[in-house]
Amino acid sequence: MSRFLARRLLALVPVLVGVSIVVFLILHLVPGDPAEVIAGTGTTGEGIEAIRHQLGLDRPLAEQYFKWAGRLLRADLGRSLVTQQAVLPQLLYRFGNTLKLAVGGMAFALLVGGAWGIVAAVHRGSMWDHIFTVIALAGVSMPIFWLGLLLMLVFAVQLQLVPATGMGGPATFVLPVATLGLNATALVSRIARSSLLEVLQQPYVRTAWAKGLSQPRVLWRHMLSNAAIPIITVGALQFGYLLGGAVLTETVFVWPGLGRLLVDAIMQRDYPVVQGGILLVALTLIALNVATDLLYALVDPRIRYQ
């Protein structure tokens, strides 16, 4: 196990270096200039040169990269070109907010989706099952920003039950979490349904049914162990997806999260923020993958790593 872990971690190094170079190159080779963004239409050629010089953007590309990478090794992500704020604290704050949304969305998905899937499985083939299946697929097929705007219109503007936007008390979490969690909810419901169905097919369960017995505890345990692997897989995959979906959700609900920050930073060519942010996200996803692999081994003793 520890050898496996060491190998996985070692394999990360080239990936991370690759990610950092890709991010750096994509951004710097793209036309567009942060100095222009900062200056707007307010200054002339010389003014823009002054800004460029101030930001060190007039240095050769390789020099800029190694300077950045060198600082990176000391956990210094530099300063935003646009806001002049240190990048790392800003990223961590935004990332924390996105995590709140993503974790909330995941919890929502597990609770609602799980219950939903069980109901559908128990009433398999019934009208309810069909309706649930359709709703689940509709949920996956719903454009997230459309859903967000509709929820906002109904619950915030018309009914005035919750605030439309912003991050504050618990009420402000309701709409973004529900919006972000919907796709995952639909997926979880389908997995829960099929896992439970599989358990219900087991001979001993059928025997139990035939005997007129129901053993909720046995059922529950078997379903859980059966569903654990797919749920972990989906959880890990969905989590990455949630981080991405957060971009749209954060835009609609003006959530101070990482996704929106990165989109704005890409548009403004705020290199240090984009580079740092994508690295952070990449690291998280990679860590998540490793953790998933380890979890597999813990959950399912049949899986071994050489």
Partner: peptide, 11 residues
Amino acid sequence: ATRVAQLETNQ
């Protein structure tokens, strides 16, 4: 749309 919603909800 969000700005308008914020005004309407007095946010």
